[in-house]
Every structure is written in structure tokens, then in C-alpha cells.
């Protein structure tokens, strides 16, 4: 009987204490943040999304190499001598066209290892976290501002210049050989030596002349394919993969040699 009464007393006491607590909480400020309208202040150095200021990119590929998951993919084209790409805001000279700068945020592990190597501080983590999509392919962000025409133009110019250079080199070599032959002829008067050198030269020219021709062929084939955007992307992807494989092989070889 006494126990029942004390039990009842303690039960009611605890119930009223509990009700007091809930009543107090009813009038305390709630901790809810009304998310889309009100946002929490984010801490400094948050890592949410990579952003590239492509105007400052010099195409050095340090970020691509630093990435542990290979989510950054950069393609560059050498600029020709007559093109001046200007300087970055940090004063670096830009020498490469960056025709492709894709970051796959679906692969990204937010380690920020790519941010620190950048010599021009053009790749940064930004405070943007609402970029989910329905298709993970939409998570590949392209930062290159070059149009397909510009890329083609840059490629063509580079090829033209290279061919030009090669031809100049060849001509210089021929002139040198000619000079040497003349010297020989003047010195020894040996006809057979002169004959052999002249017989060699057209053959040499033809072999060197063939390669630019072939290159032009392939480039024209490429430009034809670029009409079809998908095929173009496919081709680029293949090229990218090939580059990547080559780099990987190189790295492995290096590792092996280090071992």
C-alpha cells in the first residue's frame, strides 16, 4: 500500500517534470534551417566542386598528373609562332592551346590534390554543391572555351608550321649536303661521290615528303568526321585514351626503373 502510494507519487512527479521540459522546449527557438531560403555558413576551404579559370590555364597538366582517380582530362595543341596567346593573370606566358579540359565530378574524390600544384592557381574548389543530375555523364564539366572550328584552325596551323619547319630543315640539310658535295668535287674531283649524293637526295626528299602528305590525309579525314559531333567526340575520346595509356605505360616504366 505504502509502496503503491510512493510509486504513484514518483510517477506523477516524473511525469510533471517531463511535461515541464517539453513545455520549455515548445517555446525555445527551433534549430531548423529553412534550407533553400536560409543556408548554413560554410566553413573556409570547403571542397565541393572544381572550377577552372580557363583564361589562366597554361596547359601544363600538373593537375591531371596529380589526380589520383584520373578525373581530369586535358588536351593541348602547341601554338604557332605567329599566334600570341598572351599571359595569365599571374604573368605566365601561355604557349599551348587548351582544346580540352574535362573534369568528371562523378569520379572526383574531392582530395584537392590538383589544386595545389597549379602554377597559376587557375583550378580551385568553389562553394557550389547543388549540381546533382539524372545522368552521370552530365557530371563531366568541360572548361575549354575553344570551339571545334578554333581547334581545327589551331591544328591546321600547327601542322602547316611543322611542315614548314621540316621543309626548311630539309632544305637546310640539302643545301649543306650540296655544299659538302661541291667541296668534295672541288677538292677531290671524284665523280662517283657526287653522283651518289645526287642519287640519294631525291630518294630522301620523297621519303620526307610522304609523311606530311599522309598527315594531311588523316587530318582531312578528321575534319570530315567532325561534321558528325558524336564521331568527333568518339575520336577525341579514343585519342585521349591512347594518350592516357601511353602516359600510364611511361609512369609504370619509370616506377620499374626506380625499383
Amino acid at each position: 500500500m505504502v509502496k503503491a502510494l510512493t510509486d504513484t507519487y514518483s510517477a506523477f512527479k516524473s511525469i510533471f517534470i517531463g511535461m515541464g521540459i517539453t513545455m520549455r522546449h515548445l517555446f525555445t527557438r527551433s534549430v531548423t534551417v529553412q534550407y533553400p531560403e536560409v543556408r548554413d555558413k560554410l566553413p573556409e576551404r570547403v571542397r565541393m566542386k572544381l572550377h577552372v579559370n580557363i583564361d589562366d590555364c597554361i596547359g601544363c597538366r600538373l593537375c591531371e598528373r596529380a589526380c589520383p582517380v584520373e578525373c581530369i582530362d586535358i588536351g593541348t595543341i602547341k601554338s604557332t609562332d605567329d599566334d600570341d596567346l598572351g599571359e595569365t593573370s599571374t604573368g605566365h606566358k601561355k604557349k599551348l592551346w587548351v582544346d580540352n579540359f574535362d573534369i568528371d565530378m562523378a569520379k572526383c574524390c574531392y582530395c584537392e590534390l590538383c589544386v595545389h600544384p597549379c602554377p597559376t592557381n587557375c583550378i580551385t574548389m568553389v562553394e557550389e554543391y547543388e549540381y546533382s543530375t539524372y545522368d552521370r555523364r552530365d557530371l563531366i564539366f568541360s572548361f575549354s572555351d575553344m570551339t571545334p572550328e578554333q581547334i581545327e584552325e589551331a591544328n591546321r596551323k600547327l601542322e602547316a608550321e611543322e611542315e614548314n619547319k621540316r621543309r626548311k630543315k630539309e632544305e637546310a640539310r640539302l643545301a649543306k649536303e650540296k655544299k659538302a658535295a661541291q667541296k668534295d668535287a672541288d677538292g677531290g674531283g671524284d665523280a662517283s661521290a657526287g653522283e651518289s649524293s645526287t642519287g640519294k637526295s631525291p630518294a630522301g626528299k620523297s621519303t620526307t615528303g610522304e609523311s606530311p602528305f599522309g598527315d594531311a590525309d588523316s587530318s582531312s579525314a578528321k575534319s570530315e568526321a567532325s561534321g558528325d559531333a558524336d564521331a568527333d567526340r568518339e575520336a577525341r575520346r579514343e585519342a585521349r585514351e591512347a594518350r592516357r595509356a601511353a602516359r600510364k605505360a611511361e609512369r609504370e616504366a619509370k616506377k620499374k626503373s626506380e625499383e
Binding site: 522546449h25 525555445t28 531548423t32
Partner: peptide
Amino acid sequence: KVAGHMQDRLGPM
């Protein structure tokens, strides 16, 4: 609303 505010939430808003 009572449930929300007693748990320091806002309830339907």
C-alpha cells in the same frame, strides 16, 4: 506543430 516545436523543430512550414 506541437510535436515539431517540442523537439526544437518547426513542423510543417
